[in-house]
């Protein structure tokens, strides 16, 4: 499933989607950035509630296919702009990480 296809489902909306064509190959959940950095696999969708600038670097360097902001977490406009510039996909959902991953497990 691509990031764009996921963004078009009911549960999610796109915050930034410069590379909607990227494939999602699995899911990683975590808020400790170094932990995510070391454990998330390339092309995973990364579910988090962190909303600071540093999530962009982690997503870019660990090469996740998208960040999914859980529980309605929102980002400052400047962070969204940087994500677009750096080619980082970000989706959001009102659901919590558990509910999101349950939904993803039947979709992926």
């Amino acid at each position: 499933m691509t990031v764009k296809e996921l963004a078009n489902t009911e549960l999610f909306s796109a915050v930034a989607m410069p590379h909607g064509e990227r494939e999602i190959n699995g899911v990683y959940i975590g808020d400790l950035l170094s932990w995510v950095m070391g454990r998330a696999e390339a092309d995973n969708a990364w579910i988090t509630i962190m909303s600071n600038n540093n999530i962009l670097a982690v997503a870019a360097l660990a090469d996740t296919s998208c960040i999914i902001l859980a529980e309605g977490v929102s980002l400052e406009d400047s962070i969204v702009k940087t994500a677009e510039e750096k080619g980082i996909n970000i989706l959001k959902s009102e659901k919590n990480a558990y509910e999101i991953s349950v939904a993803l497990s039947s979709m992926l």
Partner: peptide, 9 residues
């Protein structure tokens, strides 16, 4: 609070 300091670096 920014998500660092997990002792994983």
């Amino acid at each position: 609070s920014l998500g660092f300091g997990a002792g994983m670096g």
